[in-house]
Design a protein around this nucleic acid. Structure first.
Lengths: 212, 212
DNA sequence: CGCGGCGAGTGACACCCGTCACGAGCTGGA
DNA sequence: TCCAGCTCGTGACGGGTGTCACTCGCCGCG
């Protein structure tokens, strides 16, 4: 309050925006630029361009979507933390899956906001992240704790990811370089761990819980 | 130009926004309100609230997403055309599936824009729709014409929709009140028409082509 | 009237899938 | 050292799945 060393408008917070949908990207820029203490200095539409643009534009906070071509927001977060020191990351994504939250925080994100949150809270989240605080959707945080850890092994995850498309066991076995019987065993154990009856249901529920 | 009966600022175009993601909704509102000749008069997050809010707020143009709870944007379009005369509809959606475009236009939409389009073009699309013109993403329009009509029968579509979740034939047969053998026949013919090998692949490709 | 097309169903066949039991190799911890 | 857990594989069983041929009734058309 009385400390003149923390000006709000003299040095606005510099924001980098990354979202694959140009319309959403531009709209978020308009929203954030309405705030006098925020300024959008760069926009990108691909995950693999984030680091380069961040180097040249020097943002304070990077606002990253997860679903992006090239590299997803979580990979981009890890790259930023490694190659662009000092920058903070706020993940803004459509799906509030507990596994996403865990992996985003592990990758070094400072905040995690779903696109269901009211628009006026986004600017405040950016300010909190810039101040060094953590911002996490509270409902999602409790769900993540209640959900427990991922019970699937690496192989089970790999096979489930291939099973989403709906191909036959032979095609999955060919893609992951395993025997058909082994693939069926992994699928069977994944079906058991997810409490489902078919491989497709198993893949869908595992995806919803962020286990992939 | 010389016609004073079409003022641009005296009577700004009144816009209703419908999108299930609050953040995107608010951001689009910020974007459109930057234009002096546009004003966002209402925002809704569910498809089944569109008609009521349109009645009370009196918009000129309704900007509808397709993926919404309650009723999707295409249903909402049909209801608007029927119950709120004079209002025009512009569909703004994530997925540029040819079937969506066709069904949206059949329902009475005046425009169809995907969220990949640049942000600055959205306001222009709203103005064109308000002026009585049609606005259709050109790439999508050609793809829709090339794709040809929907080859699936009603029953095949119904069975495919149920098959997306991945359940067994018995559960599908119970939900659609058909024999198991009949369900398998419809699935088989749908698999043939989509050029796939399994029911899940058939359901996915049919969905991508907008055949459901 | 016959004819074809479509919806709905039945039956049969080969194949695929989910499950279980079992074995071998490998790694890390008590 | 033994034990536990993960990986990868094989073999077999029962049931589910995809395909085909065929039937029956209904409707519209020439």
């Amino acid at each position: 309050m009385t400390d003149s060393r923390i000006p709000t408008s003299a040095h606005p917070i510099r924001v980098l925006l990354a979202d694959d949908q140009a319309l959403v990207r531009g709209a978020l820029a308009a929203l954030l630029n309405l705030e006098p203490d925020l300024t959008v200095v760069a926009e990108v539409g691909r995950g693999d361009e984030v680091v380069d643009v961040a180097r040249s534009s020097g943002p304070d906070v990077c606002l990253l979507d997860i679903e992006m071509p090239g590299a997803d927001g979580i990979e981009a977060t890890a790259q930023l933390r490694e190659q662009v020191p000092g920058v903070r990351v706020l993940i803004v994504t459509t799906f509030g899956r507990p596994g996403y939250l865990r992996r985003a925080l592990d990758a070094g994100a400072s905040g995690f906001v779903v696109k269901d949150t009211p628009a006026r809270e986004l600017a405040e989240a950016v300010r909190r992240v810039h101040a060094g605080l953590r911002v996490v959707d509270p409902a999602l945080a409790t769900e993540s704790l209640l959900g427990g850890p991922n019970p699937l092994t690496d192989r089970e995850r790999q096979v489930l990811r291939e099973a989403i498309a709906g191909g036959t066991v032979s095609s999955i076995a060919a893609r992951v370089h395993l025997s058909q019987g082994t693939v069926r065993n992994y699928l069977s154990s994944a079906i058991g761990k997810t409490g489902t009856a078919t491989r497709v249901e198993a893949a869908r529920t595992a995806q919803e819980r962020g286990w992939l």
